[in-house]
Design a protein around this nucleic acid. Structure first.
Length: 448
DNA sequence: TCACTAATAT
DNA sequence: GATATTAGTG
C-alpha cells in the first residue's frame, strides 16, 4: 500500500485563502517531502475533493473562508469522500472542535500552525489503512475506543501544548458513525485518467478476456481493487447495452425509411461530416413537439424543437415555391422561445461548402427527406408526415419566401445543436431584418 | 475458495 | 447517478 519510503510523497491538498499562509504551509509540508497541491479558493478545493479525491492522501482545509461554506459542504459530501481531512481554524473553542469532528474530519489544527503540527499528518492515512484492514478481517472494529478521537492533534493555543485530546465529549460513536471513512473503502472517483486506463486495458485484453482481475492488473493503479474494477465494469457494460439497444432502435426506424439501406449511418455520432447524412425516419424527429405550432397549409404540422437546431436543406427542387436558386443551399436555424417560433432565421449561401460548421456541436440528428416518387412509403400519410419539418408560417420568416411547400422536394435536412456563439449571432441577426441575403450570408460565414 | 456477475444498497 | 457491497453461481 505505502511506498517504500512512506510518508515521503504524501499527497496533500491544501486549501488556504491567504496566499502567504498557503505558501508557507506548502513549504513546511515540502520540507517533509510531502507533495502539495495548493488551492486558494474554496469552490476549487471542494471540486478537487469531490472529483479528484484519489489524487490525494489527505487534505488540509481552512475552516473560514470568504466564498463557500466549507462546513456545510463537507457535511454534505462526507459520505462520499473518503479522505482524511484536517481542518485549520483560529477558533479554539471546544464546541467548534466538536462540531467539526462530528462531521467526520480527522483532525483540527488551531492557527497559527507550526511546522511540527504538519509533520505527522500522515498518521491519519496510516490509521485509516489499518482500520480498513482490521475491519476487513474482524467485523468488530468498534473496540478501538480511544483511537478514534484521541489521536487528534488538538492544540490548546493558550497553553501552547500539543495533543490535548478531547475525550468523552465527542462520543466515539459519533465519530465512527457520522463519517464512516475508516470502515468503508475509499471511494474511487473514475476520472478521465482512470477511465482511459480502464478502456485501454479492456482493449488490450480484448473481448472475453476482459475480466475484473485482468483489467485490474493491466490498469496498474495503486489502491484500486478488483471490486472497484468489477463495479466499473458493470457500469461500463450497462452503458454498452444502452448504446446497443439505442442503435438497434435506430436501425429499426431507419429501415422503415430505407429498407434497401441505400443510405447509411455515417461515422456514428462523434463527428459531423458534411454529406454523410444519417438517415432517420419521421419518428426520429417526432421529439420535435408539434405545439404550439400552427399548421402547414396542407395540414402538416410545422415542427419546432425544444433544442436549438440548425437545419440545412440541400438539393432544393425547382418546383418549390421557395425562391431558391439551383444548387443553392438554404439553411434554417431556429430556436424556440417561449413556445413561439419567433426567432426563426434564415439565410442563404451560394456554395454550401463555404459554410463552416466546425464551430457547431456535434450533430444531434440528421435526416433525409425523399421525394414523393420514392416508393418506400407504404402510404401517403406517412409521406406527408415526412415533410413535417417544413418551416412555414413563422412570422420572422422572410415574407417573400412564404408560403411554400416542400412536398415535391427532394431535400436533405440535417439538424444539430447550435452553439451559443451561433445562437447569439442569430439573435443579433434578427434585429437587422433588412439585410440582403447576400449580406447575411457574408456575415454568418465564419470564414468570411 | 476464488472469480465473476447481477442485484441491491448507499 | 455513481460506486460499493452483497449474494448467487460455476
Amino acid at each position: 500500500m505505502f511506498t517504500c519510503n512512506f510518508p515521503e510523497g504524501l499527497r496533500v491538498l491544501v486549501f488556504v485563502e491567504n496566499l502567504q499562509t498557503l505558501l508557507s504551509l506548502e513549504k513546511h509540508l515540502q520540507d517533509f517531502q510531502y507533495k502539495v497541491t495548493r488551492c486558494q479558493e474554496g469552490a476549487g478545493a471542494m471540486h478537487l475533493l469531490r472529483n479528484h479525491m484519489n489524487k490525494f492522501d489527505i487534505a488540509i482545509i481552512e475552516a473560514q473562508n470568504s466564498t463557500v461554506d466549507i462546513f456545510r459542504l463537507i457535511s454534505e459530501i462526507a459520505s462520499e469522500i473518503d479522505l482524511p481531512i484536517i481542518i485549520t481554524s483560529k477558533d479554539d473553542s471546544v464546541q467548534s472542535v466538536i462540531n467539526w469532528m462530528k462531521i467526520g474530519v480527522c483532525d483540527y489544527l488551531i492557527k497559527p500552525i507550526r511546522p511540527e503540527d504538519l509533520r505527522f499528518i500522515f498518521k491519519h492515512v496510516v490509521k485509516k489503512m489499518q482500520v480498513g484492514k482490521r475491519v476487513e478481517s474482524e467485523e468488530k472494529a468498534t473496540a478501538e475506543k480511544s483511537s478514534s478521537v484521541g489521536d487528534s492533534t488538538i492544540r490548546n493555543p493558550n497553553k501552547r501544548k500539543r495533543s490535548m485530546f478531547i475525550d468523552g465529549q465527542v462520543g466515539e460513536k459519533d465519530q465512527d458513525h457520522v463519517r464512516d471513512s475508516t470502515t468503508k473503502k475509499r471511494r474511487v472517483v473514475w476520472d478521465n485518467e482512470l477511465k482511459k486506463k480502464f478502456l485501454d486495458a479492456m482493449e488490450d485484453l480484448g473481448p472475453g478476456k476482459a475480466v475484473p482481475k485482468k483489467i485490474l492488473e493491466r490498469m496498474n493503479v495503486v489502491g484500486m481493487t478488483r471490486e472497484n474494477v468489477a463495479s466499473h465494469l458493470q457500469k461500463h457494460r450497462m452503458l454498452l447495452n444502452k448504446q446497443k439497444s439505442q442503435n438497434e432502435n435506430d436501425e429499426k426506424k431507419r429501415s422503415l425509411l430505407s429498407p434497401q439501406g441505400g443510405l447509411h449511418s455515417g461515422e456514428g455520432s462523434s463527428k459531423f461530416y458534411r454529406g454523410s447524412n444519417i438517415q432517420f425516419s419521421t419518428q426520429h424527429i417526432s421529439n420535435i413537439p408539434h405545439q404550439p405550432l400552427r399548421h402547414h397549409h396542407d395540414g402538416v404540422p410545422v415542427a419546432v424543437s425544444t433544442r436549438n437546431l440548425l437545419m440545412t436543406n440541400q438539393h432544393h427542387h425547382q418546383t418549390s415555391d421557395f425562391t431558391c436558386i439551383e444548387n443553392v443551399e438554404e439553411s434554417l436555424i431556429y430556436t424556440e422561445e417561449d413556445g413561439e417560433v419567433s426567432n426563426l432565421a434564415s439565410f442563404f449561401t451560394q456554395k454550401s461548402e463555404e459554410m463552416s460548421l466546425s464551430h457547431l456541436h456535434e450533430p444531434v440528428m440528421a435526416t433525409t427527406m425523399l421525394s414523393n416518387d420514392n416508393q418506400l412509403f407504404p402510404n401517403q400519410q406517412q409521406m406527408m408526415n415526412f415533410h413535417e419539418p417544413s418551416i412555414l408560417h413563422t412570422h420572422s420568416f422572410p415574407l417573400s419566401l412564404t408560403p411554400s411547400s416542400f412536398l415535391d422536394q427532394k431535400e436533405t435536412i440535417m439538424m444539430m445543436n447550435v452553439d451559443e456563439g451561433l445562437q447569439q449571432w442569430l439573435l443579433n441577426e434578427q434585429e437587422q431584418p433588412n439585410l440582403t441575403d447576400e449580406n447575411r450570408f457574408s456575415s454568418i460565414n465564419p470564414r468570411a
